[in-house]
Design a protein around this nucleic acid. Structure first.
Lengths: 199, 199
DNA sequence: GAGTGTATTGACCAACCGGTAAATTCAAGC
DNA sequence: GCTTGAATTTACCGGTTGGTCAATACACTC
């Protein structure tokens, strides 16, 4: 006996949320159409009706994850800070706090990341997102170098951006396996000990 | 008809190598006893005979991976460098080159890392390895702070070590998805632009 | 060279997987 | 109220999985 009906948008969103829960709980490798259906309290045929193939469900889940994870999406309040170094500091802090606040998103994203080494379609999406991330930091670093040219002799905006991205990703990896032992404050203090004293 | 015989050690090693190949090719989620057996050209029952359960095979694969990946295992030639900052520089370069040289090990390790969030036994192993890694950097950073106390005012060995570990892990993540675009030289130049000028 | 233990195999099983197809139910149009 | 089309479900299929078990072939001892 069929359950209540729903519009396509609503149902897709419901299924994607369920897929997210299952993927976080059992890993992408353990993601199963039937498990998603059970999580959403639907029949597994309905999941296939809305996503046709499992592959498409997984890809759409990645798109959903990217769309709902606010990485560097809201640097509005940061843009008003007068000093470029303060802006960098604020963005780094903001990103680290996001990682600490949403460990499940971070973990799943990293799992997709590893999967991208095997799946072309996923690598394309991940690479595009990485590029977007890098460009955002590139702009910050360029402004920083322009504002204080003497601060980092010999460094390029490219290199500094790559460095910042690696920093954040390293934090993500560390916070993922050891969330309570990972101290955001101490970490940022070390960063400022190396970088910030020049700002 | 059974194939040639082999001692338990030899066969276990052979199976673990095959498991490594399969895990790298299809991911840990796609690791299958039958796929491992096919890769090793054995019957799948023999794999179970030597490892009892799939879970044990996976755990033993992680142990094998940790044992055969020379992370910070050979810092002998580095130890002779007179300046602490040179030692840090050499170790960072050494680790980054290892990541570039063995992307498959790195990728698989990261996949286990993500899996550790779901599997206690794996998290314990990963955490122990992370702790070992952090301690190695801690020793280097302590020597650095002792040798040049004025270089990093306000920074602790703990904070610097956590920073270095995040750095390396960030590089690993980035090199994994984008190996050819990841330029070790430019990256290290950026690091030296920020840190090295004081050495 | 008979006997013994163990490494190795093929056959089998229940459970689960992705996917298909037909039946059923619902909401809206006329 | 009847038709129509889409949402939903049940039933089913072929294939794969982890795991068991009995049969078998090998290396070794005596």
């Amino acid at each position: 006996m069929p359950g209540k009906r729903a519009s396509e948008d609503v149902r897709r969103e419901q299924i994607l949320r369920a897929a997210f829960e299952v993927a976080v709980r059992d890993g992408i490798g353990g993601l199963t159409i039937r498990a998603v259906a059970a999580e959403a309290e639907l029949s597994h045929a309905l999941v296939l009706f809305h996503f046709q193939r499992k592959e498409r469900l997984v890809h759409d889940l990645l798109d959903w994850l990217i769309a709902t994870t606010p990485v560097l999406r809201a640097p509005l309040e940061v843009a008003d800070l007068p000093h470029a170094m303060d802006r960098l500091d604020a963005v780094l802090r903001q990103e680290m706090e996001r990682l600490a606040r949403e460990p499940r998103h971070t973990r799943l994203f990293l799992e997709f990341w590893a999967m991208g080494a095997r799946d072309d379609a996923i690598r394309v999406r991940i690479s595009a997102e990485l590029e977007r991330y890098r460009r955002a930091f590139h702009a910050i670093m360029e402004a920083l170098l322009r504002a204080e040219p003497a601060a980092f002799p010999g460094a390029t905006a490219d290199g500094l951006a790559a460095l910042a991205v690696s920093w954040i990703h390293g934090c993500a990896v560390q916070a993922m396996i050891d969330p309570e032992h990972f101290d955001t404050g101490e970490y940022l203090a070390a960063v400022r000990g190396i970088v910030g004293q020049r700002g």
